[in-house]
Design a protein around this nucleic acid. Structure first.
Lengths: 217, 217, 217, 217
DNA sequence: AATGAATGAGGTTTCATTCAT
DNA sequence: AATGAATGAAACCTCATTCAT
């Protein structure tokens, strides 16, 4: 019953284009059923929302039956929760964590969200935050991650301020939060600014303005 | 707080054409059923999402039967669309209408979104954008409004740049867009930064940083 | 407040083709509302069946509101009944009655049912018989008419047998009934023999064979 | 009375492909749910028409829930279509298969329709033809069968004409068609001639007159 | 005589979930 | 670990009918 998570899902790796992604001996199917369910659910939740994604649909996308999902997750809600938890692994903002990301990396981190390839990440992130506004448990899990990320970013900014890289007159905590707010806004590019997705000059503009926002000199 | 109804859809009212459209006893304008449905739907869509709000629930909240809604709206989708259209009337960003739009007002406009009273507006805006990502027609209607608002803001910034109020080296179009992105991000405060809602110092911080963002000197 | 109805829908009236069918003084609309409802209902019942025709649809076709129908007919069932009664007026088989139709006319009477113009009559007749198999009262009314028609035809055949025009060895009663059965079958031409509708040689064949069937010499 | 299922639709069964398809304990073949649904639907469609038969009613008659029907048929329309296809198996006219079809058997084949036991077959046949006039797909399926049957009968008549059993001056194709028209008319006996159902002398009369109709000598 | 809002029942269909196999 | 039949609730929507105006 306990999540094992030996081989963390690494959701959208086909992007990196690694040549051989078979399992080590080629015998067993490269991905566990559980993993496939999570991936299908993430995609469907992102595209159609939680209520808009039916268990049969998720099952079909995973190549199994609806009933079978219940061998892996107790309910649709639990499946959502697991998807939410996993979503952090594909979200640039959360990934950087241990990296103790240099604050100078922040503008790039944000502007990355303007890329076409991250569409699913954007959609999923929005859906996760929507779900959080409706479900207690999702809210709790998400808050933990969000706060950790913001703390990390705040720390990075603090460090940079002591370095002299960033303007020390700006509250680093608030700066981190506003930074995240802006990233959150970028998640809506697909509906708000569909024409600017993948636009290089827009990306550069975002990069530059965010630098200013967090107090770059 | 009172609906102004400048440009009412004129769906079912132009028929009688009588100049006085009061209710039978002339007392209260007795908010029309149609109006009540729209208000209930807006609230429920905001709180539980489109798919999460059932017609019976909307009806109950409006004090009528589910079937009765169909005398006023052809389908749940059309009801959503009407709610989306109406939502612009309560959204600060759209209300400003470019007319008065001094660019100096922009930071205040954005920071207003951090207030507790606007929770419903925030939720509804998010839901509307979510719906847009799933429904063609909603997307179209929303895009029209979004673009109009961004154009208005862009113009205001241009003017201010010629005035010397704002830094003219910043692309005013992009600035308007990034401004909207940030506002979009602020809509998520309820899940992202619940503790900062209504926080005065945060509000001031947002105000100040946005000023910088759009190039205030 | 008063409906003007300048351009009434005039749905399916070109069939009867009577030259002047205006009301006596030309002032009032040529057809009473009641009449229009009956005609619309007949058409819709014929095309979509009783259950497939909704009161709103009938009302719309009649240029009025569903509620208004209830000023003229107590219920949908009663409307059906009235339509059934009226249907006899457009049905060749019933029309001949008083004519004490010479039996020699019978084959022509039947073969007339193969004409394209009678499509609606065919459909309505079938629907009426279908309704009869489900509704007691309709069954009663229809039985009365059917029996009268068959009696009339039987009598005509009897007369002709005494005349020597028809073979007297054939039971005239049964012959009349079988004749009606055949006509009933012809009602299904639209689905059974769509390609033969309006076909001259088929019509002649039917004419000739029916002559034989009833014992022509 | 037992289904023969010569040409079973093979919808969901080809999967297991095991030779023995008995129920778990080998006792009764335990009529499959699918079969039960089809039988209930056929009965109800015959008695109350397509629109007059609700899915809950069909389900109740089959001893299951309405939702369960959708595990076997995609929609009510598809269920109708399947019922239509199956209906041919119980319809004397289609069963004869032309193979054995001696034309001398035709009068008997038709007069069989006057029997009380065939009431359901009559009602279902009428309903199927009614449905055909309203639904494209049903029309297509029915036309195929109708045409095959008429071709078969036409061939049988041709053969008999060369044998000298039937009058060769009659167009065999038209004769087959008129024969079918008459059978179609007999389907309406329950409403048209309720008192003659099962009547021996009427049956003999029909038999004899049909012989004449197709040119017997 | 007619409207239009409203109801309450009922229609088809989908869904989350369970369970025997 | 998985299937597939089944359930029961609930969804959207339509309908026949009523009634104040």
């Amino acid at each position: 019953m306990i999540r094992k998570r030996r081989k963390l899902p690494a959701n959208k790796q086909s992007r990196t284009a690694g040549p051989a992604r078979r399992s080590r001996n080629g015998a067993k199917p490269a991905e566990s059923t559980r993993e496939r369910i999570l991936k299908s659910a993430a995609t469907l939740f992102a595209e159609h929302g939680f209520e808009g994604s039916s268990m049969p649909a998720i099952a079909r996308t995973s190549g199994i039956t609806a009933g079978a999902i219940y061998k892996h997750f107790r309910s649709k809600g639990e499946l959502l929760l697991e998807v939410v938890k996993r979503s952090f692994e594909s979200t640039p903002l959360f990934i950087q964590d241990s990296a103790t990301g240099a604050a100078t990396e922040l503008p790039r981190l944000a502007s990355v969200y303007t890329e076409p390839e991250l569409k699913l990440v954007r959609q999923l992130s929005i859906e996760v935050h929507s779900a959080a506004s409706r479900d207690r448990e999702v809210r709790r899990v998400l808050a933990l991650s969000d706060e950790a990320a913001m703390r990390g970013i705040g720390d990075a900014i603090s460090v940079a301020q002591r370095d002299g890289t960033l303007d020390p007159k700006i509250n680093p905590d608030f700066a981190a939060r506003l930074f995240c707010v802006l990233v959150m806004g970028l998640l809506h590019m697909d509906t708000l600014l569909p024409n600017l997705i993948g636009d290089k000059s827009w990306r550069d503009f975002v990069h530059e303005r965010i630098s200013t926002l967090i107090g770059s000199r």
